[in-house]
């Protein structure tokens, strides 16, 4: 939504982030295909084999959380989330930079809080198992923990760009 033609060269850190986001998309894409296939198997099991695979539901909940949070972090990297650009677009350059600063800083803090608390939630939930699947409940919290970490990294990337942009504007 705020794609600005960054004339700046992509740094090594940017390329690292690009790599991370590609990897996230790959994992999430595979999860989507697996999700589709397991449900095909569920329907087949219930109607053809007359034996419902009881693990499909619980597994699908895990897969969707994985797809959602990996995909969402990529959205932060590429600025593709739904946002309201009405005010941003009508603001002068310096106000825009201020908006970006507040926005990316709050995302970085949020990512950090997200990572730490999801980690604790994971530990808290680790003691009991997800019924019918037999894996620890704590697994549910892992994708969101990853997402928190990735959001932190990506927003730092945006903050670095912001810094360079402001510096360039000041030099001019």
């Amino acid at each position: 939504m705020f794609e600005q033609a960054d004339a700046l060269k992509r740094s090594r850190y940017d390329r690292f982030l690009d790599y991370l986001s590609q990897l996230s998309l790959l994992v999430a894409g595979i999860a989507l295909v697996v999700l589709t296939l397991t449900f095909g198997w569920l329907v087949f099991g219930r109607y053809v084999l007359n034996s419902t695979p009881t693990w499909v539901e619980q597994l699908s909940l895990l897969l969707v959380v994985l797809i959602a949070f990996l995909g969402a972090s990529v959205g932060i990297h590429k600025n593709t989330h739904l946002g309201v650009s009405f005010f941003y677009d009508r603001s002068p350059f310096w106000l825009q930079q201020l908006f970006q600063l507040i926005s990316q800083l709050s995302l970085a803090i949020f990512g950090c809080v997200m990572m730490v608390n999801s980690y604790q939630l994971m530990l808290f939930k680790w003691g009991s198992d997800i019924p019918l699947l037999g894996v620890p409940e704590g697994i549910r919290a892992i994708p969101i923990m990853l997402c928190g970490g990735l959001v932190l990294l990506y927003s730092i990337g945006h903050l670095i760009h912001l810094f360079h942009r402001v510096k360039a504007a000041l030099m001019r």
Binding site: R46, T52, L132
Partner: peptide, 12 residues
Amino acid sequence: MKVRVMNNDLYS
């Protein structure tokens, strides 16, 4: 028979 159960290994 296909019987709906709650989420618990004991019930299934």
